[in-house]
Simulated assay, not measured.
Amino acid sequence: MTTPARPQVSTHASASPLPFTADHFPADQTQPRRKWWIAPLTGTLAALPVQLIAAFLLLVSPMALDSCNAANPCGRTEAALGAALVLLLLALLSLGVPWYLAKRKSRGVGIGVSVIPLGLTLASIGTLLLGIGFG
């Protein structure tokens, strides 16, 4: 009676090629969708006029500090001007975010992210008006 032969197991690394080499990576599954540009374009067209209004208000608002002196400090107004400037700069910088994310992600992400610049601009205007004393 013969015993079945055991398969020989090699203890050193095999020289077989890997299943994914540099030439054989799977294709990128995130293809841009058709009409992906509608949501960011709408968001940009809605945000730009409001940003111009916010920039005008920010440029005119230092006149609210004319009455400030040592007896009547205007710390709240100065802080509001600084915060409004930072929010407006963030809004301007965030105009590019919807374009990138709308092309790469789903439709809901594109629409949701497209309102970020408009929201930051409106927050800038609100902060400015509250700081000056219109609120």
Score class of each variant (00 low, 15 high):
Gly135Thr: 10
Ile38Glu: 07
Ser14Trp: 04
Leu59Arg: 04
Pro17Asp: 09
Ala79Trp: 06
Ile111Trp: 01
Thr30Met: 12
Ile38Gln: 09
Asn72Thr: 12
Cys68Ala: 15
Leu93Val: 08
Gln31Glu: 09
Asn69Val: 15
Thr127Pro: 04
Arg34Asp: 09
Asp66Arg: 08
Pro73Ala: 03
Glu78Asn: 09
Arg76His: 15
Gly108Cys: 10
Lys103Asp: 03
Trp37Cys: 05
Arg33Cys: 07
Leu92Asp: 03
Thr2Lys: 14
Trp37Thr: 09
Gly119Pro: 00
Phe25His: 12
Leu122Ser: 08
Val86Pro: 02
Phe25Lys: 10
Ala13Ser: 11
Arg34Lys: 11
Arg33Tyr: 07
Ser124Asp: 03
Ala64Glu: 06
Ala13Val: 05
Ala64Tyr: 07
Met63Glu: 12
Ala39Gln: 02
Ala27Arg: 11
Ile132Phe: 10
Gly96Trp: 10
Thr3Val: 12
Gly82Ala: 14
Ala84His: 02
Gln51Gly: 06
Leu118Val: 03
Ile132Asp: 00
Leu45Gly: 05
Gly75Leu: 14
Ala79Leu: 09
Ser94Arg: 02
Trp36Leu: 08
Ala79Pro: 02
Leu128Ala: 04
Pro19Val: 13
Glu78Cys: 11
Leu85Thr: 09
Ala54Gln: 01
Arg33Lys: 10
Leu57Asp: 07
Gly75Arg: 08
Pro19Ser: 07
Arg76Cys: 11
Asp28Ala: 15
Val86Ser: 06
Leu120Ala: 01
Gln8Lys: 06
Leu57Val: 07
Leu52Gly: 14
Cys74Lys: 01
Ala5Thr: 11
Leu92Pro: 02
Ala13Tyr: 08
Asp66Ile: 07
Val50Gln: 04
Arg34Pro: 03
Phe25Gln: 13
Trp99Pro: 00
Met1Ile: 04
Leu41His: 04
Pro4Ala: 15
Cys68Asn: 06
Pro40Phe: 03
Gly126Leu: 14
Ile125Arg: 01
Pro73Glu: 03
Trp36Ile: 04
Ile53Asp: 08
Thr3Glu: 15
Val115Glu: 04
Val50Ser: 05
Val86Glu: 05
Ala83Gln: 10
Pro19Thr: 10
Ser16Arg: 06
Asn69Thr: 07
Pro49Lys: 01
Thr121Lys: 00
Ser124Ile: 01
Ala46His: 03
Pro40Thr: 02
Ala84Cys: 09
Gly82Tyr: 08
Ala39Arg: 01
Thr77Pro: 02
Asp23Ser: 15
Leu101His: 08
Ala27Gly: 13
Gly75Pro: 08
Leu90Glu: 01
Asp66Met: 13
Ile125Lys: 00
Asp28Gln: 08
Tyr100Gln: 10
Arg104Glu: 07
Phe134Met: 12
Gly75Ser: 14
His12Asn: 09
Leu93Thr: 04
Val9Pro: 08
Thr121Pro: 01
Val86Leu: 12
Arg107Ser: 15
Gly131Pro: 00
Trp37Ala: 14
Asp23Asn: 13
Ala71Asp: 13
Leu118Asp: 01
Leu92Lys: 00
His12Arg: 15
Gly133Met: 07
Leu90Pro: 02
Gly75Glu: 14
Leu45Trp: 04
Gly119Asp: 02
Gly112Ile: 01
Ile53Ser: 11
Leu57Met: 13
Arg34His: 09
Gly133Gln: 05
